[in-house]
């Protein structure tokens, strides 16, 4: 396994905070105590790696999920924000907005090996479920660029509202939703024709659009409006606006950004920016169940493969909070680079 180079020291160091599991006991005789502990901790998040884009440092932090340590730092272009895995899972695409392109990192060699065109100032993007087309929000250009990752060219551009930001795609790949921060719309785009079919007004400064795993709803967070709009994909109507209330916090400090669902669609998580909280929502009732206190200005979220952990990027405190979803508490704050922004888990 890739974690075999861990030293006894680092293993011992992370032992205290690790949610120890009882796997791999039979290996004692062969591998020694240090390796046993490494194995034991690796069990729940076996061989998982977490990638974090650092907006200020122009780097990607590589976190070993078993040890919860930064094991590598990859240099990329300027102002890396949105990150996502390629269709084959072998590469990582990184929006480097100030260089107006997408960097392609080979996960084997952990280096930037290629670049893709993106249109100006790419911030967020989403990969079509078939793995070939990448839909990129060009924040400074009122466009969504459709990038063919194999031909390495922009296939077409779709005119949207002012300051396009969030990008969500339905599980069947037929519907794309883009949000525009100043126009305050969720634009529904038919991926067959690449044309806008509907525009749904949401609250101020919409950020992220995320489809529920069943594809029936799309959730759109509004950073300044302080809400998450739940839009019925069939009718294109807002069925509910989820509001948040944290005791002791001013309303304007609650700024929803990223939204994530578990694969079964039974749990939803919303990052609340300078409220320094992640809200957990029951998608059945659309009620907030609890708030997890994390680092400062929490931007984006990623679930571990087995969905026992949630990783959050905290842009002001320069760290990643690791929430144990079984224990329901933060088990670690992990220092990464400057202004961490995007996060993704590779199983």
């Amino acid at each position: 396994m890739p974690h075999s180079r861990s030293t006894a020291g680092s293993v011992a160091g992370s032992l205290a905070r690790a949610p120890a599991a009882a796997a791999g006991r039979g290996a004692v005789a062969r591998t020694g105590l240090g390796a046993l502990l490494a194995l034991a901790m690796a069990a729940p998040a076996a061989a998982e790696t977490v990638y974090v884009s650092n907006e200020k440092d122009n780097t990607i932090s590589v976190i070993d999920a078993a040890k919860l340590e930064v094991v590598n730092t990859i240099k990329v272009g300027r102002r890396p924000r949105g990150i996502t895995l390629s269709g084959d899972g072998k590469s990582l695409y990184v929006c480097v907005g100030d260089d107006n392109r997408i960097d392609v990192i080979d996960l084997q060699s952990q280096q930037v090996v290629d670049r893709l065109p993106s249109g100006p100032d790419p911030e967020l993007f989403v990969l079509h479920p078939e793995g070939r087309l990448l839909y990129v929000a060009n924040e400074d250009d009122n466009m969504v660029s459709v990038v063919d990752t194999q031909a390495k060219r922009i296939v077409t551009e779709i005119q949207v509202g002012v300051e396009p930001e969030g990008m969500g795609i339905s599980p069947d790949g037929k519907v794309l939703v883009n949000t525009s921060e100043t126009t305050n719309m969720a634009h529904f785009i038919d991926t067959a024709s690449n044309e806008i079919t509907d525009n749904v007004l949401v609250d101020s400064r919409p950020r992220v659009a995320r489809f529920t795993p069943d594809g029936r709803h799309v959730w759109v967070s509004a950073e300044i409006g302080g809400t998450v709009s739940v839009i019925d994909v069939a009718t294109r109507q807002i069925t509910k606006k989820i509001e948040f209330e944290v005791r002791g916090l001013r309303r304007e400090a609650i700024q929803p950004v990223d939204v994530r669902f578990t694969k079964d669609g039974k749990r939803a998580f919303v990052a609340l920016g300078p409220a320094n909280r992640v809200a957990e929502i029951d998608p059945a009732t659309l009620e907030v169940k609890k708030y997890h206190l994390v680092g400062q200005r929490v931007w984006n979220l990623a679930l571990s493969g087995d969905e026992t952990r949630l990783y959050t990027t905290n842009g002001v405190s320069n760290d990643v909070s690791v929430i144990d979803l079984e224990k329901d508490r933060v088990i670690k704050s992990l220092g990464v680079g400057g202004a961490p922004w995007g996060v993704i888990v590779k199983s």
């Binding site: 509202g161 002012v162 100043t182 126009t183 719309m185 525009n199 007004l201």
Partner: peptide
């Protein structure tokens, strides 16, 4: 111009 960007949809 910014107002019109929302306005054209509404």
């Amino acid at each position: 111009a910014d107002n019109a960007s929302t306005g054209r949809f509404l």
